[in-house]
Design a protein around this nucleic acid. Structure first.
Length: 607
RNA sequence: GCCCCCGUAGCUCAAUGGAUAGAGCGCCUGACUUCGAAUCAGUAGGUUGGGGGUUCGAGUCCCUCCGGGGGCGCCA
């Protein structure tokens, strides 16, 4: 991505903020070391700088003096660490003062704080944002390829709000990793075979032969699936019939396979429409049907290597006794079943060869699985088994888990039981409400514009809550809350972007770079400070596999900008102030757009 | 029996081991002839489930208890 920007990578550090102050801070760090040595105070291994937490002041602080005092205390000196830290900080400052590049240096509560002169750096922050434009915040190329597997829908079933959390999360994670400098491969893994498909095919042949879907294909597929699983569950004769269909399948019955191909395609097309709507795309589709046979071969190899135990002669399945193989006393990895007693495949049968295929055919360095938390143990088993098999990259597999989405009343979403909220219903209702609001707020827009905006706002509103809550918290789907466009929500962030755009449009052009020559307001400093932190937030988000970090950041930035434009007139300010604030507004708009883009949310120009 | 996750304001949630635990919603009070009020400003609201421990410093790490959810040889 961003091939045109490659040339910059050599000179731009991953963190523009640190880079801007790198020289000054390194300089100070060195001097502090020298000073501590002169004063005969222990020198901490690491002297790290963090932004000071005081609103409207722009600076960096270090806790190095705490570290030093703590070392003294551990060495047996009877000292009160906080008091001693403060003492050391003051002494060091006396020893060094004044320090070049900083407007104020203060010892506060044991911290050694350095405040920079805002005007001096304001221009640099803005210039960097505007120069880099839509790549502002990106990380250096890591020369590593990472694959993110997500979505993984089953054909012949519904696509519901439970699936949404997965797609949104996986998509945002991919965007963030890519932006941070990883060569990112978006992978989907389709469940196109298995007992659920067989039941569907049976039900179709038995009760719906010749039928074609009208309207929403995915809903049609779901309806038949729901009917099938009910019938099979309640009626043993029906189950026996379905088992016969399974047998036909195992014998490669041509007629059945033709029906499978056709209906599978129907599902896939339905999914693709949903991905289009969501703005998601995949670089590769894997299918369970393509790894089933390799999986069965692999199972035989594992039996030969005596890693797997074939219990089929005694009516059992093929299992891998992981704890036993590892010599673990305590139950840890337990036992993994890798093939049914009747020789048919399981998830594990297919996941093993797929994991290997990913590394070997795609030359990836890291393999991420976006899958719900209930499969934690299962994935732990798969990854460990890969290692035991001698496939070392098992340790480069990572389970990005997330909690499930329930319906109100703690009702589990189940396509088998039909307790689902279909994606299509959700997006249509969100669109309807968004359209109503656009109509009310901006009646003069053309109908096409209204529709486009409603779509952007509706999608943002649905996506944002999936990203702004920690992965391991259970989400409850609630119509009212899912469609709440107020407060901490995507439309708020989009609105800030729109307002910035509106100001810039009225101004016409963005002025040339210039330092501010007025006393900066608290809101301006706060906004500049937030802008400068974006690159670090991207890095942190990528390193921790947490899109939540960017979701929080985007909202914080929007709030900071809203406070800014409310308090600081831009167009009405006198010329120099206007010029500076216009550039600041442009930088804010750009950074809002960049952070929203990472979340997979569009930033409209008007709304 | 073993394992994992959650518990923070009335509700929904934030918070690199750091400075005074922050938002939104809801409640109450203000600001549109003003760059667009999908906005902003302000009030009130907390023993971070309880108890120990580690640390100079714990919502965050460790132990334990309580409450809730989930997983554990042929479901996916």
């Amino acid at each position: 991505m961003f091939a045109s920007d490659r040339s910059r990578h050599a000179i731009m550090h991953r963190s523009e903020e640190w880079m801007m102050f790198e020289q000054e801070l390194n300089n100070v760090t060195l001097k502090i070391r020298q000073s501590l040595k002169r004063l005969d105070v222990p020198i901490p291994d690491q002297i790290e700088w963090v932004p000071t937490p005081f609103e409207g002041q722009w600076g960096f602080g270090t806790n190095a003096c705490f570290q030093a005092a703590a070392v003294e205390a551990r060495a047996g000196k009877r000292v009160n660490v906080p008091a001693r830290a403060q003492e050391i900080a003051e002494t060091v400052l006396n020893d060094l003062s004044p320090i070049a590049g900083f407007i104020r240096t203060v010892a506060e509560r044991g911290y050694l704080n350095l405040y920079i002169k805002p005007a001096e750096y304001a221009q640099r922050v803005i210039d960097i944002v505007l120069e880099q434009g839509n790549v502002f915040g990106h990380g250096d190329p890591k020369n590593q390829r990472v694959m993110v597997e997500y979505s993984q829908p089953n054909t012949h079933k519904a696509f519901h709000v439970g699936h949404l959390r997965n797609v949104i999360l996986g998509g945002a994670m991919s965007n963030i990793l890519e932006f941070e400098g990883y060569d990112t491969v978006r992978a989907n893994y389709i469940g196109d075979i298995g007992w659920h498909v067989i039941q569907w095919l049976w039900c179709y042949l038995r009760f719906h032969a010749g039928e074609e879907p009208e309207g929403d294909r995915t809903r049609w597929m779901q309806d038949i699936y729901s009917e099938a699983s009910q019938l099979v569950e309640d009626n043993q004769e029906f189950e026996a019939e379905a088992r016969e269909v399974f047998a036909r399948w195992e014998h490669d019955d041509t007629e059945l396979i033709d029906l499978w191909k056709k209906t599978r395609q129907c599902s896939l097309e339905g999914f693709n429409e949903i991905y289009d709507t969501l703005g998601e795309h995949f670089d590769v589709f894997f299918y369970e049907s393509e790894v089933e046979k390799p999986g069965k071969v692999l199972v035989e190899e594992l039996i030969k290597q005596e890693l797997a135990v074939d219990e089929r002669p005694t009516g059992g399945p093929v299992v891998v006794k992981l704890d036993e193989l590892l010599g673990l006393e305590k139950e840890t990895y337990r036992v993994l079943v890798i093939l049914r007693s009747d020789g048919t495949s399981l998830y594990a049968t297919k996941d093993l060869p797929l994991a290997i295929k990913k590394f070997n055919e795609w030359q990836i360095d890291k393999s991420i699985y976006v899958i719900d938390v209930r499969q934690s143990l299962y994935l732990k088993q798969i990854f460990k088994l890969l290692e035991i098999m001698g496939f070392k990259q098992g340790k480069d597999c990572y389970h990005l888990s997330y909690e499930i989405v329930n319906l109100p009343g703690n009702v589990t979403i189940s396509s088998r039981e039909g307790t689902i909220v279909m994606f299509d219903d959700l997006i249509q209702e969100a669109f309807r409400r968004a359209h109503e609001i656009v109509e009310e707020k901006n009646p003069t827009l053309s109908e096409n514009q209204k529709k486009e905006i409603a779509q952007i706002v509706a999608l943002g509103a649905l996506k944002y809550p999936m990203l702004s809550v920690d992965n391991n918290k259970v989400a409850t789907f609630d119509w009212e809350r899912a469609l709440d466009f107020e407060g901490q929500a995507a439309p708020y962030i989009q609105y800030a972007h729109v307002r910035a755009n509106s100001i810039l449009n009225k101004a016409g052009t963005i002025p040339d770079p210039a330092p501010p020559n007025h006393e900066l307001e608290v809101q301006e400093i706060s906004l500049l400070d937030h802008l400068s932190r974006f690159p670090d937030e991207v890095t942190r988000s990528a390193n921790n596999y947490k899109p939540l970090t960017i979701a929080n950041y985007a909202y914080d930035l929007a709030r900071t900008f809203s406070e800014f434009y409310q308090h600081c007139p831009v167009l009405k300010a006198e010329k120099d102030v206007r010029f500076f604030r216009l550039r600041l507004t442009a930088a804010a708009k750009q950074t809002l757009a960049n952070s929203l883009r990472l979340l997979g949310i569009k930033a409209p120009e008007v709304m």
